[in-house]
Design a protein around this nucleic acid. Structure first.
Length: 424
RNA sequence: GCGGGCGUCGCCAAGUGGUUAAGGCAGCGGCUUGUGGCGCCGCUAUUCGGGGGUUCGAAUCCCCUCGCUCGCCCCA
């Protein structure tokens, strides 16, 4: 044990994890490509004000969770706590909106100074999608379908899509005053947490876990009662589109996303297999954010998936370890250099070869060969060198055709060797 | 920021006041200079997260501290 450890809330991804991460990352790229999305990469550090203005001064993320510091030029800088604000900044800075609607995706680490728990770290990873300049409900449905189809393709089960409409900002403002005055009238009957939230973030009182408050709230004014006719129609249209896409969903009137900038569509994809932090994917529409950050009025919508939470949902049993085609056992002075040469040739021809350079006893090398899960083992020792051959054995018993197969190839017959190794 | 649980070898662990701190996995060496996945033998913690105290004596009791973990808040 050394003196140094990762900082609290920071995690190393070891080889056993990175195999799985790469599998997921490869799959999501395929999905994004098929959906015609383009990748955008922004810096991890931005001016603090970008987030305080974009996400909302009063939100928890901004008020108590940001990793901020003053740099040597006296500027207040912040490690990004989410992706959307940075993407909007980049889109505006480079005038991308002048080239028409943008359909973008991003991915990478985000930082939030919170107490770590299951499904929550201080450095965590998100992949997200943002559409700019698309106002139709069909974009909302399409955007949701991209997330849904990707998660389904990963073989995840037990996922639930929850949906709500927050209406326009006017709708929300109207509701805000209604709910606040109702809550004030019932102040004494609220639990302590809800009393505090009443002034901090009243819409979130709806989401309380306290059962008596929950019951009380059944009488409270509902958000949807404050929505305008247009907002209601829009919400109905979205539901219609999702039904056409055969994406199952549930309406959750209490779903209020925490970030200030959402309007109209808000949604979450949750799983019961995650512990207390059950949201894998969250998103919504934010038609005023671009303007808020100094750009032209631009309808926008996006979502983000939490990679760590996603990884927790992946079936432990699915085998996505990258297994080599062959493990190369070798021993002896001539053999080891010959093995190096052959291994390189095989790699050039597209095979993955793990070369044992230990010169350890054959027994040892064979043990490692098995552990590597390689399909084949190549053997080159003094006897083989004398005969000018490489010995090949099949290591897996899952394939009956090759089970217990043991054969030799002339050292110069690389093509024959490759043909066999590629045969399964 | 506030609660609960936990901290013995790289990993999983037994041990709850008494001479040398079980065991398993992994690692290394050997049986066997050459054939594994299921053999056998041996080696690997002067030390129990760290510091202080109680005691003839502590991994085991007390205090402080650090870390991990789960939950609240909030969010991906």
């Amino acid at each position: 044990m050394t003196d140094f450890r990762t900082l609290r809330g920071m995690a190393d991804l070891l080889p056993i994890h990175t195999d799985r991460w790469q599998f997921v990352e490869d799959l999501v790229r395929i999905h994004f490509k098929k959906a015609g999305l383009q990748e955008i990469r922004t810096p991890l550090i931005e001016a603090t004000e970008l987030f305080s203005r974009g996400i909302g001064e009063a939100t928890d993320v901004v008020s108590k969770e940001m990793y901020s510091f003053v740099d040597r030029g006296d500027r207040s800088c912040t490690l990004r706590p989410e992706g959307t604000a940075s993407v909007v900044r980049a889109v505006l800075q480079h005038g991308l909106l002048n080239q028409g609607p943008q359909r973008l995706w991003y991915g990478g680490p985000m930082f939030r100074y919170e107490r770590p728990q299951a499904g929550r770290q201080r450095q965590f990873h998100q992949i997200g999608v943002e559409f700019f300049g698309l106002s139709s409900v069909r974009s909302d449905a399409e955007l949701i379908s991209i997330a849904w189809d990707f998660l389904q393709d990963l073989g995840l089960s037990g996922l639930k899509l929850e949906l709500n409409s927050l209406g326009t900002f006017e709708d929300r403002k109207k509701y805000h005053s209604r709910i606040v005055s109702w809550l004030e009238d019932h102040y004494k009957m609220l639990d302590k947490d809800s009393q505090e939230r009443l002034y901090k973030n009243p819409l979130r009182v709806l989401d309380t876990k306290n059962p008596t408050t929950q019951k009380l709230l059944e009488e409270a004014p509902m958000l949807k009662e404050s929505l305008s006719m247009d907002s209601l129609q829009r919400f109905a249209d979205l539901q219609f589109a999702l039904k056409k896409l055969e994406i199952p969903f549930e309406i959750n009137n209490k779903l209020v996303r925490g970030l200030d900038y959402y309007c109209h569509t808000a949604f979450e994809i949750t799983s019961t297999n995650l512990g207390s932090q059950s949201t894998v994917c969250g998103g919504g529409r934010y038609d005023q954010l671009v303007e808020e950050l100094g750009g032209p009025g631009t309808p926008s919508i996006g979502w983000a998936i939490g990679m760590e939470r996603l990884m927790m949902l992946l079936d432990e049993n699915i085998d996505i370890q990258n297994v080599p085609n062959a493990y190369f056992v070798n021993r002896g002075e001539d053999a080891c250099i010959q093995a190096l040469v052959i291994a390189r040739k095989l790699r050039t021809l597209g095979l993955t070869v793990e070369l044992d350079n230990s010169q350890a006893a054959f027994q040892k090398q064979f043990k490692r060969a098995n552990r590597s899960k390689a399909k084949w083992v190549l053997i080159l020792g003094e006897n083989e060198i004398l005969k000018g051959e490489v010995l090949v054995k099949c290591l897996t018993s899952t394939n009956k055709q090759f089970e217990n197969l043991e054969t030799s190839f002339d050292i110069s017959d690389i093509d024959g060797l490759v043909k066999l190794l590629k045969s399964f």
